[in-house]
Simulated assay, not measured.
Amino acid sequence: MSTPVQPTLVTTSRMGAFGRIMDTTDRTPGTLHTSNAWDRQLHRIGGHLLQSWRWGEFQQRHGWTARRIQVSDSAGTAMAQVLVRFQGPLSVAYIPRGPAIFGDPEVMWPMLLERVDALARRNRTIMTLIEPNDDSVLTGTLADVGAARRADRGQSCPRVRIPLLDDETILERMHQETRHNLDLAQRRGVKAGRYPAGQLAIEALYRLMAESADRNGFGLHSLGYYEDFLHTFGDDAVLLFAKADDGALAAALVTARFGNEAITMFGGSSAHGDGHRAAVLLQFEAMRWAREMGCGTYDLRGILNRNSERPGTDEGRWLSWFENGFGGEIPTCPLTIERRHVPVLPWLARTLKRIER
């Protein structure tokens, strides 16, 4: 029988805008309570960028409180970065693209959930939204983990994962129409390049994102959110622009990396840019950057599926065609689940502000 490591907790409290907030720091010897140690171990067990220390620190400047849980046992290791958002005296919690589990999930899941529940009690959390990065961490039924299926898939919507091989192989794996549009963009004089994340460049990125959001009905954060992201991730992120032959900006893209995987984070395009399929050229250039940075895979996250609300629209057809057209693998999309800590009042969670991603 495995014996879990019992953490030693040093707990302090402070008065926040919404009441008393409990701050808990794990001081067990060897616990990963520094950024480098956390990220090294997370990378070692296959964790996602949205579980990285920097993502948590970034989100803390945008309305969340980051808490990190790490459990080790002879059966394996489990890690979860839990983002907590307070609304009045209560809170909701969110585990994006996590947890990361290495070893036997049947042993590690209960141990991890015990810590998640303890964190929920300290923060008066109504429910924790869990968006696993893959199916390997899920065991048993939803009832076994005291959870319910969530209709909103959030970060765990289907995505395309592309092996970063040489240019020729990447092109061969693309669908014929995607290769045609890449060639079309180049023949029409569209140029793609990498740019420093200066103020003017970030403002240009935001204008293109706002235009895409208005055209396609997407949500948008403030300009400062994207500026902060680029400054936080520094050399582990890249800002790319595509320009039409007349010099006008056609599309923009932000890609970041964690470990050996690069991930599409944000992007936008003008109507003119869509016509030239400038976004295809940008993604191809982002793959080259990721390969230069030592990444082995590229994650085109957020593709539509047949259950999408927009599959029959022009925007829906374009997004599905665009992201599937690169010829990568489409991993099994795990369930997004809610662990309800106040099961007798599930409706109360719906009154809280919608979780922003």
Rank of each mutant, 00 (worst) to 15 (best):
R277E: 12
W289V: 00
R354N: 13
G46W: 01
T3L: 12
G273C: 00
T264W: 15
G328L: 09
G146R: 06
N307E: 13
S156V: 03
V160Q: 10
L50G: 08
P99H: 02
D23A: 09
A147E: 05
L205A: 04
D299C: 08
L113W: 11
K243P: 12
M22A: 13
L171P: 14
A75S: 03
K191Q: 13
T11S: 05
F233W: 12
F102G: 14
A201Q: 09
A271H: 11
C295T: 01
E227K: 08
P4Y: 02
N305Y: 09
D104Y: 08
L138Q: 10
D235E: 07
M174V: 14
G224V: 01
P132K: 05
A279W: 13
A271G: 11
C333T: 14
R61M: 07
V344S: 15
A242Y: 07
T336C: 13
A75K: 06
G63L: 00
A210K: 02
W321V: 14
G63C: 00
I330H: 05
A237S: 01
E309P: 15
T65P: 04
L129P: 11
A75V: 06
T128S: 09
L90N: 15
R317Y: 11
A197T: 07
A80S: 13
A78C: 03
A100D: 02
S270H: 08
Y195S: 03
K353P: 15
Y226S: 01
R194D: 13
G56R: 05
A271T: 13
I126W: 11
T178Q: 03
S74C: 14
F229V: 02
M287H: 00
